[in-house]
Computed example of a mutant assay.
Amino acid sequence: MRAVRYTSFAFTAHLLEAGIDASIGTVGDALDNALMESQLGLYKTELIKPRKPWHGLPDVELATAEWVDWFNNQRLHTAIGTIPPHEHETNYYARHQPQPAAGANA
Results as ranks from 00 to 15, higher is better:
Met1Glu: 13
Met1Thr: 11
Arg2His: 13
Ala3Val: 09
Val4Phe: 12
Tyr6Asn: 12
Tyr6Gln: 09
Tyr6Thr: 03
Ser8Gln: 05
Ser8Gly: 08
Phe9Glu: 13
Ala10Asn: 15
Phe11Leu: 00
Ala13Asn: 08
His14Pro: 00
His14Asn: 03
His14Trp: 04
Leu16Asn: 09
Leu16Cys: 08
Leu16Thr: 03
Glu17Gly: 05
Glu17Ala: 07
Ile20His: 09
Asp21Lys: 03
Asp21Ile: 01
Ala22Val: 03
Ala22Cys: 12
Ala22Leu: 04
Ser23Asn: 13
Ser23Met: 07
Gly25Gln: 03
Thr26Phe: 06
Val27Met: 05
Gly28Ser: 14
Asp29Pro: 00
Asp29Glu: 04
Ala30Leu: 14
Asn33Asp: 04
Asn33Trp: 09
Glu37Thr: 03
Glu37Val: 02
Leu40Thr: 03
Leu40Val: 08
Gly41Asp: 12
Gly41Pro: 00
Leu42Val: 11
Leu42Lys: 11
Tyr43Gly: 06
Tyr43Phe: 15
Lys44Pro: 02
Thr45Leu: 08
Glu46Cys: 11
Ile48Gln: 03
Ile48Gly: 05
Ile48Asn: 06
Lys49Asn: 15
Pro50Phe: 08
Lys52Tyr: 08
Pro53Gln: 08
Trp54Pro: 00
His55Ser: 11
Asp59Ile: 02
Asp59Arg: 08
Val60Asn: 02
Val60Ala: 05
Val60Glu: 04
Glu61Ala: 04
Glu61Ser: 02
Glu61Thr: 04
Thr64Ala: 09
Ala65Gly: 07
Glu66Arg: 10
Val68Ile: 14
Val68Lys: 13
Trp70Lys: 12
Phe71Cys: 04
Asn72Trp: 06
Asn72Ile: 03
Asn73Tyr: 10
Asn73Pro: 05
Asn73Phe: 08
Asn73Asp: 09
Asn73Val: 04
His77Val: 14
His77Asp: 14
Thr78Asp: 14
Ala79Asn: 12
Gly81Pro: 01
Gly81Gln: 08
Ile83Lys: 01
Ile83Glu: 00
Ile83Tyr: 00
Pro84Val: 07
Pro85Gln: 13
Pro85Cys: 12
Pro85Lys: 07
Pro85His: 10
Glu87Trp: 03
Glu87Val: 01
His88Ile: 03
Thr90Cys: 10
Tyr93Ile: 07
Arg95Thr: 03
Pro98Gln: 14
Pro100Ile: 00
Pro100His: 07
Pro100Gly: 02
Pro100Asp: 05
Ala101His: 05
Ala101Trp: 02
Ala102Cys: 09
Ala102Ser: 14
Ala102Arg: 14
Ala104Trp: 00
Ala106Gly: 09
Ala106Thr: 02
Ala106Leu: 07
